[in-house]
């Protein structure tokens, strides 16, 4: 077992973790944050995407002990004081959700993209979510949601 400290969604944790578990297992099994999902276990589908120190990662490919000292943001950390994040609202408003299994990871990828690039083109959005597979939506409404998010975020800044 290994002692680690990390911050998840603004909350500090000191944990004693099994050497063999992944960050995804830590979040789900130990912290009860089940928004990040396992879809493939090999970094292909992006359902497990979380933001680690400002960048998206496949949490199924990060060993839990590697997260020592890091800041993690998961889908559960987006809603603040009962108010949805503008990206979440945009996903709802354009109908970018179907089965929902890819949705948390997809939203985290859109967030990381818009954090870096506040006004991406549709092509840039496609690239930004290219590590997140979706089998239901054909992605188009997700791209629409990202575009609407840009608008919502701008309005929020004004």
């Amino acid at each position: 077992m290994k002692d680690i400290k990390l911050n998840v969604n603004g909350k500090d944790y000191t944990l004693n973790v099994d050497e063999n578990i992944k960050l995804l297992g830590l979040l789900r099994d130990e912290l009860g944050l089940t928004g990040a999902k396992e879809g493939c276990g090999e970094g292909e589908c992006g359902a497990c995407t979380v933001i680690m120190d400002g960048e998206t990662v496949n949490s199924c490919l990060v060993m839990a002990f590697q997260a020592d000292g890091s800041n993690i943001l998961t889908i559960e950390g987006l809603e603040q004081n009962g108010e949805l994040h503008p990206i979440q609202q945009a996903f709802i408003d354009v109908g970018a959700v179907q089965c929902g299994y890819c949705t948390p990871g997809m939203i985290m990828s859109v967030k990381a993209l818009l954090d870096k690039n506040t006004n991406p083109t549709r092509e840039e959005i496609r690239e930004g979510i290219s590590g997140n597979l979706c089998r239901c939506t054909g992605y188009n409404k997700i791209v629409d949601a990202a575009e609407l998010s840009i608008k919502y975020l701008e309005e929020g800044r004004r």
Partner: peptide, 23 residues
Amino acid sequence: KNLIRVDAYSKVTGKALYPQDIY
């Protein structure tokens, strides 16, 4: 009408439970 999906909120917040999420 383009009603908002009834399950949209739970799905964008990660609250929607799939079998693997049940402990």
